[in-house]
């Protein structure tokens, strides 16, 4: 554990809490892509099955349980509790375009051809593109509420901080995991356009909404 990794995890946790609080306090999931959230729930489920096979640390297990719980709580809020506010007319990204290639890729390119390892690999590939329905939705409606923007910024920062952690680990420990690194770079690059807008437009004092051009 190094400071970059910890900062990445905190940023990830912050993103999830921001989203849950936003939906809960506004009693609405307007502007939130349920499809992205379904894919994040699939991601954590596939990746954290090792909760039952591997104990790494109390920190590790606790965070996994929090991420899993929060992912399903978010789905509950979107698809059950505040279903009436779900903006499905704008959440039209075709998820099969993400699911099918990531399943195929995880079977073809993995560290070990075993069920748990393939599921881990699938989760890494799927996570890297899971935000696309959300970004697509924001570009389609042309705006994101500022709180949604904060969520996206925290979520994007998480993998960017992980990249710095991987650079650090390469030099400090000689450790690297090419699958995680390549997917993590792809994931971070997808946020670049958003980061640019967040920093340039989001910093205006009275900005409550930001526009994102497709």
């Amino acid at each position: 554990m190094n400071v970059f990794r910890l900062a990445g995890d905190i940023s990830h946790l912050l993103a999830i809490i921001i989203l849950l609080l936003k939906i809960w306090t506004s009693r609405s999931c307007a502007g939130i892509s349920g499809k992205s959230q379904v894919m994040f729930a699939i991601t954590y489920t596939a990746r954290y099955l090792d909760l039952f096979t591997n104990f790494i640390s109390l920190y590790n297990s606790t965070m996994k349980i929090i991420f899993l719980g929060a992912a399903y709580a978010t789905l509950y809020l979107i698809y059950v509790r505040f279903k009436a506010t779900y903006d499905h007319n704008h959440d039209t990204f075709r998820v099969e375009f993400l699911l099918i290639p990531t399943v195929i890729l995880s079977v073809l390119i993995n560290h070990d051809f075993s069920p748990l390892e393939i599921l881990w690999t699938f989760s890494i590939y799927l996570e890297s593109v899971a935000i696309l329905p959300q970004l697509f939705m924001v570009s389609k409606t042309g705006e994101a509420e500022s709180i949604t923007s904060h969520y996206l910024f925290a979520l994007g920062s998480y993998r960017a901080l992980y990249i710095i952690n991987w650079v650090y680990r390469y030099y400090a420990e000689g450790f690297y995991d090419l699958i995680a690194i390549v997917a993590g770079v792809v994931q971070t690059v997808l946020y670049c356009d958003f980061f640019y807008l967040y920093i340039t437009k989001g910093s205006r004092a009275n900005a409550t909404e930001m526009s994102i051009e497709a």
């Binding site: 591997n54 790494i56 590790n60 965070m63 996994k64 991420f67 690297y176 995991d177």
Partner: peptide
């Protein structure tokens, strides 16, 4: 490189 299949990151 260390390519064991224990993943210690989240």
């Amino acid at each position: 490189s260390i390519q064991d299949t224990t993943h210690d990151e989240l």
